[in-house]
Structure formats: C-alpha cells, structure tokens
Design a protein around this nucleic acid. Structure first.
Length: 588
RNA sequence: GCCCCCGUAGCUCAGUGGACAGAGCAGGAGCCUUCUAAGCUCUUGGUCGGGGGUUCGAAUCCUCCCGGGGGCGCCA
C-alpha cells in the first residue's frame, strides 16, 4: 500500500470519528512544503455536507489523529487546511520497505486487463522521418508502463502494407521494368530471393506513381486492377509485394533497433485480408450497413451528435477496401484471437474523427463488445524552430535515421569537450554516445504532454544541460560511481536510519511518490508524468550529492544508510528511465 | 459552417478544484586540492489569451468571444 493511501486511511479514520465520510481524509503531497510535507483539504469539503465550520472540523480531526508514531507535526492553516509532517523514524521505515521491495513499492494492478498497443505503423515504401518519433517513443513508453503495472500487453507496429498504394507500386515497377519475371503470367515460379528494388527505389517510386494516378484516370484504373489482382493472389504480384514489405521492414528495423523499440507483432493491414470478406458479409446480413452511391457504408452518426459524423466507408464504389475496413477486421482479430480487452491506438491526433467512426462502427457491428475498451491515444505534431512542421534546411523531411545520427554525434562531441571518458575503450565511448543521444531524443519528446505540438530545436536537444535525458543518466551514473568506489573500500549498505539533513529527507520523500505517479501516468496515458518525476528524483538526488558526502561520512551507520538510500535511488531512476525507454550506462 | 486540440515568464514547456502558478534555457552573481562541474547555490522575470458564470476556493469545470493549428464519404 502506498504511503499516500496509508496516510489517507489514518486521516480517514479520524474523519469517521468526527462523523464525516472517510473519503474526506484523502491526503496529498503538499504544495506548500514550508508548511508541511502532506496536506488534507477534506475539512473544507466536509464543511458543506455537514453544515459546520471547516476549521472546527479540522481541529476535531487533528485531535482524533493517533497521538504519536506517524506524524511529527500536524497543524491547521487558513480556512481549514490540515498540514502534516512525518516523523523521521516512520519515514525511514517506509523507505526501508521501499528499498527492500524489488518493485519499489508499486504492487501490480488488482485487475489485469489484456492490452494491445497499436503503433499506427509506418507505411511500406516510405522511410521513417522525424514525424514518426512520437508514436514510436510514446507507444514504447506506454507498452513498458502497462507491462510494469501488471497488464498483459501485446504491441503491434501495424504496418500500412495493403491497398491501393501497393497496386501503384506494382504498376510503377511494371512501367520501368516490364521485363521482370514477376509480370510474366505464364511463369509459375519460383521467384528470385533477391528484391528487384531497394528501399530507396521504393521511396522514389511511390510519389511518382501517386502523381500519375492522380492525373491520369487510365493509370488509376491500372493501379486499381493491380491492387485487386494482388489481393486475389496473383503469384507474381504476391512475390513482388513480399519483396516490397521485406525491404521496407529491413529499413524500419534499423530505426527501431537504434531506438531500442520492439514489437510483439509486425502485423499490418494485409494480416487481416482473409477476414474482410466474411466480416463484410456478416455486417451486410446484420443490416447495419447500406449501399450509398455504389459504396458500402455504415452509418455511425447519432441523434445527439453536435457535429457531423460521416458514415464509415467499408467498400469503395470500385469494390476496393479502405483502411477503416482493415481497422475493423483488425479489431475483430484482436478481440477473437488475441482476447484483447483494451485497444490503444497511438496515432496522430488528427485522425481522431477516423477512430471515432471506426470505434462506433465496431460497436454497431458487434465486433467490439461493450467490455472491450477502444481508445485513441492521440499526439501532437513535431514542429521546427519556426513553429511549422519540421523540415531540413533544404526543405525536405528529416529522416529518422539522420536525426538519430545527429544526436549521437552531438553526444560524441560533448564527450570530447568535457574531456570525460577519454580513457574509455573506443567501443564503450560509442556505446555511451548512442545511449546519451537516444536519451536526449526520447526525453525531449516524452517530457512534453503527448497532445501538445512541440518545437524540435536540435541545438537545444543536444545541449544536454538542465532538464534533459542526459541529465537523468548522469545522475544515475554518479550513483553507480559512488557504489563502485564504496565497494572498493569495503563499504556496504546498511539499515536506513532517520534523516537528519533536509536534502536527505527530501530524497527519502521523493522515493515514496512512485505509486501515484505511475497510476496517474497509466490512467492518462501520459508518460510526461513519469518524465517529470524522474527529473524531480534526479534533482533531489543531485542536491543530496552536493550536501552529503557519503565516502567521507564519519558515522558508519549513517554512511551505510546513505549507501542504501542512494542504491534505492539508482533502482528507482533506472526503473523510471526504463519506463521511458532510456538506458543508463555503467559510466559516462 | 460544424467539431477537435492548443494559448501559462523573453524562449521552450510542466501543472492532480485548493494556500504565494512551477521547471529548463536565456540574463545577472557565486561554487571544482572534495564520491564525475552533463553538477550545485543565489538571483531577475507572470493581467495563466479576454469577458462572464459555478464554487468556501478556478490556470484547472461551464459559457461566450479573440488568436493559432487541425479535421469534416470513396487517401492514409
């Protein structure tokens, strides 16, 4: 049980004794640390329902609190705020429990639910750019958080690997290389293992094809035809498509590996292709869909809507499917095969209407039962220093690969300037630079609330000073260094003794905040709360580091206690950083 | 036109209906014979876009304006 809920119980008991509901005893972290470590504002709220003076209630509640043991100081301020300060011995006991717990005081959730995190994956034939940072980093943090708090979780990159774009790539390649064996209808295989195109080829081919299709109806018809034949299973087209997918995935994997992001499933729109026909038949038979201008649509508007919610298009008038169609079939798969209870879509906030339509359709068609939660976890855009979508100097989109390279190189430069790690092996220096660069990138993103559009200023990101990923790593590494030095001197952690210095007490208090921070982060799907907390812990530790010199401490009991305290702080920081997808080097 | 998101210090951003609204950067002043100075200390800087309302109490909830971004049937 968290410290906050324990205190809430104590104060709740007191409220009950005074004749008020125990829920008024809710205790929170004080926003006036000068007056107390914790506060309870319940007396003000209780005053209304009891029809009594809030200050008077507060006084009775305080009188009903246990005489000693937990609090060293209890006071009433203003109209009825109850300020609480913990007894140092009690605090040391709580911290000892936390330090002894390998989950640092966070119990697993009482009701685990099967979660699926959908990363709204990148498309085949396109390389990842700066805009993909957000879904990758936010989605990864969410899957780590969900798992840690105890929800069984599966992640799915969910590639855009099906539909008209694939047909367009095929006709584009046919136009350029009609001689390829893949286009020969008389050929029955096998097809070459080697791809006829590189990712660079695909990236260049796709916009070219899209432009021609947009201009020329005959080209559009050819693309539609090719798409249909691909989906119907024409062997040469399937073989070709597999090459497109493989080549694209290899490129994507390079980026995800560099960022340390992993998926349980590399599914895509194509994964559910075989489910679409039966699903559509069932939907049509059930009567929730209708024909409209030659298309099959499902009306999702409701009488009480204050906005226009257009019908979800399931089948276009030319007979092909849209991404809403595969999204529906994917929900079906996740519910039926993966037994998912919570579906999270980590996708650009601009797609909110699309998800509203799909979610409503899934309910209407009986694909998602009521007890399955469907949630769009949206996020804002990444802008350049001018406030507009991030572009390179030449005006193009910055590739994710290049971006990662830039932050890593900046970290290498910083290592040189600081003249630190000079004597480390070259291989380790490179590893450190990678970890530091990636941390800067991830923390820079995750410290923003996911919904806000933020400005990506490369210079600021690689400065590595102040509120940055490297600052957090540096704090953790300092602890590692202390523990190493201590071990060399034969010093070991011991029982945690009551604090005597403010910096020490503050560090202890900070360590007990984990449960509420994680609960709130998961509830809001907002990793910036973890980022903020990690920064707080680092700041408090660095103050402690400045004031309390462990290796020079004369009192052996205190020294051992401090070693235990910073050891726990390291575990906590490492956990928080891990939840953000950031690793802590052994040294830096 | 309708709907969604955003508007907080010079800049970039946090902020759980509670007390005097926070941090980083930038600006100013200090701290390395001391466990890593990617650090620490002090300091300057605010009509929380504006007006109403609900509440004992509003940056936070409701409403109306203003400004910015985005979305609105056969693209994803």
């Amino acid at each position: 049980m968290s410290l906050l809920s324990r205190l809430g119980d104590l104060v709740g008991d007191a409220f009950e004794q005074v004749g008020a509901d125990r829920s008024f005893g809710t205790v929170e972290w004080s926003n006036r640390p000068d007056l107390g470590q914790f506060q309870c504002n319940g007396a003000l709220a209780a005053a209304k329902s009891l029809g009594r003076n809030p200050r008077e209630i507060a006084q009775q509640v305080v009188a009903a609190l246990p005489a000693a043991g937990t609090f060293s100081e209890v006071s009433i301020a203003g109209p009825g705020f109850i300020n609480l300060t913990l007894d140092d011995t009690y605090l040391a006991g709580v911290v000892q429990e936390t330090a002894d717990d390998d989950r640092l005081g966070y119990p697993t959730v009482s009701q685990p639910r099967k979660h699926i995190v959908d990363f709204g994956g990148p498309n085949v034939a396109k390389s990842m750019h700066v805009g993909h940072v957000r879904s990758t980093v936010i989605g990864d943090s969410l899957q780590r958080l969900l798992r840690f708090v105890g929800h069984p979780t599966e992640s799915d990159i969910h590639l855009g690997d099906w539909g008209t774009p694939m047909g367009m790539l095929i006709i584009e390649l046919h136009r350029r290389r009609p001689d390829l064996i893949y286009f020969d209808l008389d050929y029955t295989g096998p097809y070459p293992d080697e791809s006829p195109v590189t990712l660079e080829d695909l990236e260049e081919m796709y916009p070219a094809a899209a432009a021609r299709v947009a201009e020329d109806p005959a080209e559009a018809e050819k693309a539609r035809q090719a798409t249909q034949e691909l989906q119907a299973g024409r062997p040469g087209y399937r073989a070709l498509w597999q090459h497109f997918v493989d080549v694209s995935i290899a490129g994507l994997r390079e980026n995800f590996d560099a960022l340390g992001v992993h998926f349980d499933h590399w599914f895509g729109e194509s994964t559910v292709h075989d489910r679409i026909e039966p699903m559509l038949r069932r939907i049509e038979a059930s009567g929730v869909a209708r024909r409209s201008d030659g298309a099959l649509v499902i009306d999702v508007a409701r009488p009480d809507d204050t906005m226009d919610v257009p019908p979800l298009l399931l089948v276009k008038s030319d007979g092909s499917y849209l991404y809403g169609t595969t999204d529906l079939a994917t929900i079906e798969m996740r519910v039926e095969d993966q037994h998912a209870q919570d579906l999270l879509y980590v996708v650009d906030a601009r797609q909110s209407l699309h998800f509203e339509q799909v979610f409503r359709a899934a309910r209407l068609a009986g694909i998602a039962p009521d007890d399955v939660a469907l949630e769009h976890v949206g996020f804002g855009t990444v802008n350049g220093p001018d406030g507009k979508p991030f572009k390179t100097r030449s005006g193009g989109l910055l590739r994710l690969r290049d971006l990662i390279q830039m932050v890593i190189e900046a970290a290498e430069r910083r290592l040189e300037e600081a003249e630190i790690a000079q004597d480390y092996p070259e291989e380790e220096r490179r590893r450190i630079a990678r970890a530091v660069g990636v941390a800067a990138l991830k923390f820079g993103d995750l410290s923003n609330h996911r919904m806000s559009n933020y400005i990506f200023d490369l210079d600021r990101f690689v400065s590595f000073e102040g509120k940055t990923g490297p600052y957090l790593q540096y704090s953790a590494v300092r602890i590692r260094s202390i523990l190493r030095n201590a071990a060399e001197q034969g010093l070991h952690p011991g029982p945690i003794v009551p604090p005597t210095v403010d910096a020490e007490r503050d560090l202890m208090l900070a360590a007990t905040r984990l449960p509420e921070v994680l609960d709130r982060t998961v509830e809001l799907r907002a990793p910036n709360h973890v980022a903020e907390y990690a920064y707080d812990v680092s700041t408090v530790f660095n103050r402690f580091y400045d004031r309390c010199h462990i290796l020079r401490e004369a009192d052996p009991a205190r020294q051992a206690s401090w070693l235990a305290l910073v050891g726990m702080t390291l575990d906590l920081l490492a956990l928080l950083l891990d939840l953000l997808g950031i690793e802590v080097p052994e040294r830096m």
